[in-house]
Design a protein around this nucleic acid. Sequence first.
DNA 1: TTGAATGCAAAGGATTTGCATAGAG
DNA 2: CTCTATGCAAATCCTTTGCATTCAA
Lengths: 141, 141
Amino acid sequence: MKDTENIFAILRAKKMRLTKTRFAFVTLLSESPTPLSVSDILSILQTKGIVVDKTTVYREIERFIALGILEEVSLGDRKKYYELASEHHHHLICLECNRVEDIDIDESTLVQQEMKVNREKKFQILKHSLEFFGLCNKCCV
Amino acid sequence: MKDTENIFAILRAKKMRLTKTRFAFVTLLSESPTPLSVSDILSILQTKGIVVDKTTVYREIERFIALGILEEVSLGDRKKYYELASEHHHHLICLECNRVEDIDIDESTLVQQEMKVNREKKFQILKHSLEFFGLCNKCCV
DNA sequence: TTGAATGCAAAGGATTTGCATAGAG
DNA sequence: CTCTATGCAAATCCTTTGCATTCAA
């Protein structure tokens, strides 16, 4: 949904500077097929010859989330993972090899039930997190 | 589903000793209406006058998860939370006051879709995590 | 030039590990 | 008495904070 041009436009609108690091950061995120942790981001940038401090990555993530460009994902371990806020989707996480795959499911019934909760429990649901855990075809014996 | 007697029976079967700490641990978990973090468990035990080291709590959690008595829950922050593995249910988490409430939803369509993924993607789904985030009635302006 | 962005050091919080000791069975 | 369970100290990993410096606009 949000391609890199789109993101750069947002940054420009917010008068955020297009530093070399930020450019690499946006590119990296837009090219990644899976959510990335801070350590993922750091090591990938390093292989590209871009030296960045972890603090910068943490702060960049913070800014991007505030802008609605990035989303946080929980994949079960201690770290947090991040991916571009694009079409709403979920993940298949292999418990064996930890590979993460995107998955698109029909949420109509889920949304219906959320509306029901909104009404009946007076709890206003703003978002949900739904992840599936199991064994991918390679790890499934 | 698993009441304390049930749990003690499992422990006995596994020849695990019923220490004072373990007794308090089981009681605490069975009485808590919400998932607890390690720091939660430590501070509650302390108010009950039971002095336990955090290492013990971590190890006890590890054992209980291995036995299938405990389940890990992710509520969005850095910590992990734990609750007795009882009927499968989900949580409403208030983004404002962080209060956690159990919620029971109809998962039939979700399960159907999981079976579809099992077939089509050759990814064998073993479990899922589904949490709802929003504003509870007290925090909803 | 100027404030946003960065790097570095250090602190903070959650979790894990190694080892010696205590205590349930 | 024996082996599980525990406590303590220290290490590790992830994240946050404070402050001085750099650099895009």
